[in-house]
Design a protein around this nucleic acid. Sequence first.
DNA 1: TGTGCACCACAACTGTTGGTTGTTCACTAA
DNA 2: TTAGTGAACAACCAACAGTTGTGGTGCACA
Lengths: 311, 311
Amino acid sequence: MDLEAVRTFVAVAEAGRFQTAAADLSVTQQAVSKRIAALERTLGVRLFTRAPRGAELTIDGRAFLPHARELLRVAERASASVRPGHRPLRVDVIASRSAQSNLMRGFHRAHPEVDLDVLMLVDIESAVAALRSGAIDATFRAVAAPGRPLGEDIASVRVLDEPLQLLTGPAHALADARSVPLARLTGHRIWMPGIAPGTEWGAYYDDLVAEFGLTIESTGPNFGSDALLDTIADTPALATFMGAHSRLIWPEGHDLRRIPVTGPTPVYPHSLLWHRDNPHPALAALRAHLAATTAGHDAAGTWRPDWVMPR
Amino acid sequence: MDLEAVRTFVAVAEAGRFQTAAADLSVTQQAVSKRIAALERTLGVRLFTRAPRGAELTIDGRAFLPHARELLRVAERASASVRPGHRPLRVDVIASRSAQSNLMRGFHRAHPEVDLDVLMLVDIESAVAALRSGAIDATFRAVAAPGRPLGEDIASVRVLDEPLQLLTGPAHALADARSVPLARLTGHRIWMPGIAPGTEWGAYYDDLVAEFGLTIESTGPNFGSDALLDTIADTPALATFMGAHSRLIWPEGHDLRRIPVTGPTPVYPHSLLWHRDNPHPALAALRAHLAATTAGHDAAGTWRPDWVMPR
DNA sequence: TGTGCACCACAACTGTTGGTTGTTCACTAA
DNA sequence: TTAGTGAACAACCAACAGTTGTGGTGCACA
């Protein structure tokens, strides 16, 4: 199926005549006739009844028309997504199904008029480089990881402190606890595959281990959250940490338990970073939205690494 | 933008290499290279960084990828919408924003897995012909208009009795009435542009006029509901009827009034028609849904034409 | 009942393009 | 260095989309 043919189809449907559609598209009537004929051939149905008064949509044509319009809309959005200059606001999040994605969904609900692209880069270095180059407009990160100053040109603000919860299978020793103090986790094996040293998550868990003497294993390949949940569900000796706001795909029949951690509650600090000179108009709206909807930083009884930037 | 190029882009993004993508698409590596180069030229950005290990998405490429996937999905749905054999369920409604469209929205919410196309045909004759030819699977109509038997092959069931309300501007004599008896409308001018004689609506209002002595004018061209509402809002001597379930676009600052009609309440009878031999699997689901969610036919204190089919 | 008119399809031609094969270039690993 | 991998470039060819020119069909109107 050819997009140019689809565009021609919509033009003919709106004009009701091949001739005027041809004029609208600045081609000859014969070209329009050929395009429609080709589209009808690929679809295998007749889209117009040709009358001496013009062309009228068949029932198949009527059914096809809204899909054709939608196709052109999506194509326009696709090409706009990389249009230099007026492209959609581009925001980098650390993972789909994370608290950050939830924040972006909330922003989209509050501002449906803002064109938005959410993507996932790898590490904070490439994200900050992308901010500097203008390839992205904002990124959610935990700043600043120790020993890595951001630079004067990068602005940031803390937007959310997300409590961590313990995730266990039904046979785990702590499975039936209503909540568990952080100190009680000493000696339990906590498995966090995919947490690489040098990343923000790595620095975070390094500090958690150093301060509370936990046993966190980040060994082994990361086969994705499905495999992680499968393993946690079946292994009595393993648990894992999970953001309280993450919307994971709950596997059927696995009876996993989310257990709040207390005394203190470790919270993961999400910040928004952007370039001070970024002129994107929607960036201000995003910052205002996040400032208005997120709160509760530094609550009593919570823990975060000491390198977390002050508010 | 060429859909084949977009498909190639997605294949390369998934494979990570031009060569394997070429194999997947059964073309040569050179053809893939050309397609990507052409796509990058039309978009004006680089989509891949070519490394000796393969091709990796640029940030622009990452932003473009979900749009490209969506584009292919929409294209597939578009061509499926006219695929003979397994096409979506095709249902004809009398107008968008009508009670019938609301019913179809409810069905779609209840059965999001059912592919659905909603369209609007002109009159009941063409709709029934389309049912017979298999071009559509169901139609919402008011059956049977007087003197027009449907035939043994067309089945129908009443699905909704929709009360009519009076719509007036703020200066109308009845504007502040909480409700108005049908008999009180004698002498008031009621304007229903676009109601053609011979159609179901025409027959309905003919009967209403004959029984209650109303003054209904269907003269004048129908410039659409916007123009109708504008006129009603500004003209003290005019009112119109409107289905209680219709979701019209309420104009800003017009202060229109919807006034229930009583003693009796005229109700418009919506029925679903389909061909007895139609094998579409989703048709049964639609009938079951409508049977389960609609009720309240023939309530006391309501009026409908006597040609309305019994339940 | 012709005749003109409006409209679309068909035919022939042509420039562009998308595909192929053959080859070169860049980089990595041994 | 050399072999190997992966993508781009060059040349060629077939197919196609566009053009001009022409034909056919149904309606309006004399």
